[in-house]
Design a protein around this nucleic acid. Structure first.
Length: 492
RNA sequence: GGGGCCAUCGUCUAGGGGUUAGGACACCGCCCUUUCACGGCGGCAGCACGGGUUCAAAUCCCGUUGGCCCUACCA
């Protein structure tokens, strides 16, 4: 129990980075940070047919974008390199160095055996059992057969068939940090395959997922296995393997799944599922972290659950401080886009323009780069009412090009003969500071007996083509005098 | 089919024998306002069902129903 805290996120690079995975990674990260521990990224790429380097890169970049930086793991974009003392961190690179020796010693110690039953035979027996309404379990017929390595064989682990000191009343007990105590009768598990049938010429085939996980988690000194709920059923198998190999078992915490709006497992048909899509939709990484963390997790402040809107908006520092696996829900949660939007908006409001700028930039035209800091600060300030970076960028569309189309109804309503003389007067103004504009406006309004509202709306239509824009003085400042005069002139 | 997990407003949740069942998002209304927004105030809305136990059940027990996960020589 005094082991240093080490957590790991171990995705398979078989597609995009799913936000469910990101949330699991986030919990691992929060837990590690909270306890001053280590967070590892390990790539489980043993599924040769689906794993690709591109997918590995997508995972690495998604994690990095989300701010979930790993202390140990691969170096982004360079398969040959890694950071940390337990590498490599891609499973395919650990085959000969780690898995095969481990399997061999299990074989040597008589804790695993060669099974010559073929997949086809097994499928047949399974189908027959199904048909007869029976539960299929491998009958261990090769267990004592003493097959040598002269013929192709898969390798199975000998699961306990009698009493073992680590069983509790015949059960494999999993004391899950989230789910509580879970019991699995040892007899309900059969001798599972730890290595596939070897190709011709090989003595040991490729190891299976459940085997690699245990070897790697032990080798990498993982103290807390925090992973998705879908792995609960694998855990008793893995616990048996820990004991067979003489390893200390880590602590386990299985986090609930994320479901879609309709309660089905979150999938593409519910909308965006990959982290990259959330990036493209204009969410701040901090908002994604918050929304994901708050799904299934209710932070407690001094033992009291957070209780106000203000308390909902936790910073990373607060999340790390407050994080406790015991405060995670057991039941699955439905993903709520509305809440993400709200959090995004609030975090955008709270951020300084410098904090927003690097995330905002990708949504803006190149001309943005040529603007001064003062101008950028003003522009961002004018858009901080937006719900997303995309929406914010939309608020600035009027800056980059003069309108090509005008809202005719609005033009008819606001660009009246009565205001046009005032517009002409406006072209004379040269002081584009806030105070200068205010003074200039007041004089013009008085001279023409107009209300600010009348002039502001007319100006919006003339300048932006529609009656919607940032506060009118800000709109003028962002455009600059030359552009304002040019755009007004068309209406005089 | 078998095994496991779960069940409080539409959603995320607090509460875990006696509460007017609390909060947040969404939604609705009002106010503010130079547009759109922001903001402020208020409102609507919930213990899946059926049996127990108890003076008392959202809370404990059993059952039902429903949902999710697992049930591969995938991960």
């Amino acid at each position: 129990m005094s082991r240093p805290v080490v957590t790991r996120f171990a995705p398979s690079p078989t597609g995009m980075l799913h936000i469910g995975g990101v949330r699991t990674a986030l919990f691992c990260w929060l837990f590690a940070k909270k306890h001053g521990g280590t967070f590892i990224l390990r790539v489980e790429d043993t599924d040769l047919t689906r794993s690709t380097d591109d997918n590995i890169r997508i995972i690495e970049e998604g994690m990095a974008w989300c701010g979930l930086l790993w202390d140990e793991g691969p170096v982004v974009g360079d398969p040959a390199q890694w950071v940390g003392p337990h590498g490599p961190y891609r499973q395919m690179q650990r085959m000969d160095s780690h898995y095969k020796p481990a399997i061999q010693s299990l074989l040597d110690e008589g804790k695993a055996y060669r099974c010559r039953c073929t997949k086809e035979e097994l499928d047949e027996r399974r189908a027959a059992a199904d048909k007869a309404g029976k539960i299929f379990q491998y009958d261990r017929r090769c267990r004592e057969a003493g097959h040598d390595d002269t013929q192709p064989a898969a390798i199975r682990l000998k699961m306990p068939v009698g009493p073992e000191p680590w069983l509790e009343q015949g059960d494999i007990v999993l004391r899950d940090l989230i789910k509580g105590e879970l019991r699995f009768p040892a007899t309900s598990l059969d001798d599972w395959i730890i290595a596939r049938t070897a190709a011709a010429g090989e003595k040991v085939g490729t190891p299976t997922y459940n085997f690699c996980v245990v070897v790697d988690d032990t080798d990498m000194a993982v103290s807390h296995v925090i992973r998705g709920d879908d792995h609960v059923a694998n855990t008793p198998k893995q616990i048996a393997l820990y004991h067979a190999m003489g390893y200390e078992t880590p602590a386990f915490a299985h986090v609930p799944m994320i479901l879609g709006k309709d309660g089905a497992k979150l999938s593409k048909r519910h909308g965006a599922t990959s982290i990259t899509e959330y990036q493209q939709m204009g969410f701040l990484p901090s908002a994604v972290r918050l929304a994901l963390a708050r799904l299934s997790w209710t932070p407690k402040i001094d033992g009291r659950a957070i209780d106000t809107a203000a308390e909902e908006l936790l910073t990373d520092v607060q999340m790390i401080e407050l994080f406790d696996l015991g405060d995670i829900q057991k039941s699955p949660a439905r993903f709520d886009m509305d809440k993400l939007n709200w959090m995004n908006q609030k975090l955008i409001q709270r951020a300084t323009w410098q904090e927003i700028e690097p995330h905002f930039r990708p949504f803006l035209p190149e001309a943005w780069g040529g603007k001064s800091d003062d101008w950028k600060a003003k522009a961002i300030q004018c858009t901080q009412k937006g719900k997303s970076l995309v929406e914010m960028a939309g608020f600035l569309d009027f800056v980059w090009a003069a309108p090509t189309a005008f809202d005719e109804a609005a033009a008819a309503k606001f660009l009246t003969g009565a205001v046009k003389p005032a517009l002409a007067d406006l072209c004379v103004l040269t002081d584009y500071s806030h105070d200068g504009l205010e003074a200039g406006f007041n004089a013009i309004l008085e001279a023409h007996s107009l209300k600010l509202k009348d002039l502001a709306q007319a100006l919006r239509v003339a300048l932006c083509g529609k009656p919607v824009s940032p506060p009118i003085f800000d709109t003028l400042m962002l455009l600059g005098r030359d552009e304002v005069v040019a755009r007004i002139s068309k209406w005089l």
